[in-house]
Simulated assay, not measured.
Amino acid sequence: MKEINTLIENYKFKITIVKKSNQGELKKISESIKITREFLNQLRVYIRKNDFTSKEDEIIFFKYQKPIILGQLMYLSAKNTFLIEKPTTSISHKRNFIKKSLKKIEAKKKRNLEFFKYYTHNGSSLDDKYFIRGNSQLELFSNVFLLDKDPIFSTSHDIKAAEVIAYDLITKFYAKEILRLKQEENNSKVKIVKPPILNDLSWTGSKTELVELLYGLNAAGAIRNGQAEMKKLVEVCKELFGIDLGNIYKTYSEIKLRENEPTKFLDLMKNRLLQKMQIE
């Protein structure tokens, strides 16, 4: 039915606009749920006013078209609940929370395993029983949305089909969350890797003196035969001493402009070392 396809395209367009907006994640989900509920109601009104031209059209609608939208609503509702209820403590608590949520999904799948297999493998032999209205002798799915209490707008298994779609979406979402937690955990480990022996080190000279030292070491070929990148040496000092040297090239230019003592700090090092040697 062309009208239904037009409605679905309009729905997808509105949802895409929300996804691309600058709103927060929970706000986007809330807005998407509102749009999806309104759209399902539009579909319900349309189906009540218009007959299907054939059994095939009716099956397509209740097997694919409506379940895709209703499944999206179920997914959005589950995602919203997850983001609100997820723990904000340790990574392990967050991971355990996801695992428990996945177990609940798997338990529901097991209770309807035969239909899951039928739907995911695109079975068709029972379509006239599952997706044609009026087969009230078949057991209705327990988790029924209010809109689906309308016998004109529901069959015995269209909600089950929506559940299959929703479970697939939420499972993929959980997989991404677990991957994100893994990356977060790896980043934390990288920070912890810093040896404790480095924690108490601090540069007590001036930044200019440290820049002079780095250029001196590089000029003497003491680091990578003088081929070390100055940016890398700056990052090493930042990690080692917890100091940001800023624009070292500007500092180096200022050092070169010194008239009397261009290597002031290096000369000081030399003199102090000679004094130490004489005393000892």
Rank of each mutant, 00 (worst) to 15 (best):
K2L: 04
E3G: 03
L7P: 02
E9Q: 15
E9I: 02
N10M: 06
T16H: 04
S21I: 01
N22R: 06
N22W: 03
Q23F: 14
I29M: 03
I33G: 03
I33K: 10
I35F: 09
R37E: 15
E38N: 15
F39V: 10
Q42C: 11
L43E: 10
R44Q: 14
Y46Q: 08
I47T: 06
R48W: 03
F52I: 02
T53C: 12
S54D: 04
S54M: 10
I59Y: 14
I60S: 14
Y64M: 05
L70N: 08
L70E: 15
G71Q: 03
Q72M: 07
M74N: 10
K79Q: 11
I84P: 03
I84R: 12
E85C: 04
K86V: 09
K86D: 12
I91K: 11
I91L: 12
I98T: 10
K100Y: 12
L102P: 11
K103R: 08
K103C: 06
A107Y: 13
Y119H: 12
T120R: 14
G123F: 02
S124F: 07
D127I: 03
K129H: 08
K129P: 01
S136C: 05
S136P: 00
N143S: 06
V144D: 04
L146H: 15
L146S: 15
L146I: 14
F153Y: 15
V164C: 04
V164E: 07
Y167C: 10
D168N: 14
L169V: 02
I170R: 08
E177R: 09
I178N: 08
R180Q: 14
L181F: 14
Q183H: 13
Q183M: 14
E185K: 09
V190T: 12
K194C: 02
K194S: 12
L201R: 07
S202L: 12
G205I: 01
S206R: 04
K207N: 15
V211N: 02
G216M: 02
L217V: 10
L217W: 06
A220Y: 10
G221W: 08
A222G: 01
Q227D: 14
V234A: 13
E235I: 02
F241P: 00
G242K: 08
G242V: 10
I248A: 03
I255K: 00
I255S: 00
K256E: 00
L257K: 13
E261G: 00
F265V: 00
L266K: 00
R272F: 10
L274W: 07
M277Y: 15
